[in-house]
């Protein structure tokens, strides 16, 4: 085991995959000589050279398209969005080009690409450096969407994403990059975390909390507070948002009969709505209370601290919602 930061886990996973498979290459803005805005690619350029660590022009469309075209020709490109917010520039490539490619090739041309980058708020990044728009891609067939919360998952999921034959949109919450540390397996163990598998991060009796990304840490903190009040949360870290691990979710729902879904994105039309609908469709008779959601308010992520705090979900929001649910 190696004790590393969340960021280092992602860096190591990609480096090890590049050593393992010469078809893997990276492309993004400032990832070469500089090693990436957050340093997630530090040292790669010197080691793997400019053809496998491509310093791209500021062209999100081209960055993703290069991965798509190279994938059609047998390579595995990992595209870095300097901030996940910028993926909107490359939206057509992700949704209409990568997402549809296998389908319109009659199943003959898989597109193994990873589009990854830092997402999320709580850092004063304001409108274009804070967003969580995973719902855009959650809605699109042909894509997988991943967002880990711990270094071991980030490590194992990144390896699985690179080896997966489908386009994977990989969200790395920048708030976790250097704050969260944890053990990851050694390189020779060839550890992967299968895409589509959730993980119960804390077992409990009263409420099932379904969450992912930075919110996992918020929920775990809330669970500690609530434990003192005699409220016990079962915390499911989705890890992969698409495909959804409904099996793990439903298993927990049948045990607790109450569900709270916590996500950082704007509440309306978010991933939580789909999870809620599916639980209602598949386990309605097990529910003792309405399914509740804690999410960001339907606003953009503003700059000033009081504004950002007001918009994004907090540990307190989770605590209050859990109390309400228990009392229902």
């Amino acid at each position: 085991m190696r004790e590393v930061t969340f960021l280092e886990a992602i860096r190591l996973a990609r480096g090890e995959e590049m050593e393992r498979d010469p078809n893997v290459f990276l492309i993004g803005e400032d990832i070469g000589r500089m090693g990436g805005a957050f340093g997630v690619t530090e040292g790669f350029y010197e080691h793997f050279g400019p053809d496998r660590v491509v310093d791209s022009p500021i062209s999100e469309t081209a960055i993703i398209a290069v991965c798509v075209g190279a994938a059609a020709a047998g390579k595995r490109g990992v595209a870095e969005m300097q901030f996940m917010d910028f993926i909107s520039y490359g939206f057509d490539q992700v949704v209409n080009v990568a997402g549809t490619y296998l389908y319109r090739s009659g199943g003959k041309t898989p597109i193994p690409i990873v589009v990854r980058g830092p997402s999320g708020g709580y850092i004063g990044g304001s409108l274009y450096h804070s967003q969580q728009f995973e719902a855009w891609f959650f809605h699109t067939p042909g894509l997988k969407v991943v967002q880990p919360a711990f270094p071991d998952d980030a490590y194992g999921l990144m390896k699985a994403a690179i080896r997966d034959n489908n386009p994977v949109v990989f969200y790395e919450h920048k708030h976790l990059y250097r704050r969260i540390k944890g053990p990851i397996p050694e390189a020779h163990e060839d550890y992967i975390v299968k895409l589509g598998s959730a993980r119960v991060r804390r077992y409990g009796e009263d409420i099932t909390v379904v969450t992912y990304g930075a919110m996992v840490h918020f929920v775990l903190e809330a669970a500690q507070h609530l434990e003192k009040e005699g409220i016990s949360l079962e915390v499911i870290d989705l890890r992969t948002i698409k495909p959804l691990d409904m099996k793990t979710i439903l298993q927990s729902v049948r045990k607790t009969s109450k569900v709270l879904i916590v996500y950082e994105a704007p509440k309306t039309g978010g991933v939580g709505a789909e999870i809620s609908a599916r639980i209602t469709e598949q386990a309605f008779e097990w529910l003792d209370a309405p399914i509740m959601r804690v999410a960001a308010k339907d606003a953009f992520v503003p700059f000033a601290e009081p504004l950002e705090k007001f918009v994004l979900p907090s540990v307190d929001d989770i605590v209050f919602a859990a109390r309400e649910l228990v009392a229902y």
């Binding site: 290459f25 053809d51 491509v54 798509v68 075209g69 059609a72």
Partner: peptide
């Protein structure tokens, strides 16, 4: 049909110009 070297295009004609760069990048590698 990638075996014939025919790269799939979409209705958004410009998008394939960018995808073409990737096919050529694979050749470079």
């Amino acid at each position: 049909d990638m075996n014939l070297g025919i790269v799939h295009s979409t209705s958004m004609l410009g998008s394939t110009i960018a995808v073409a760069c990737g096919v050529l990048w694979a050749q470079r590698l």
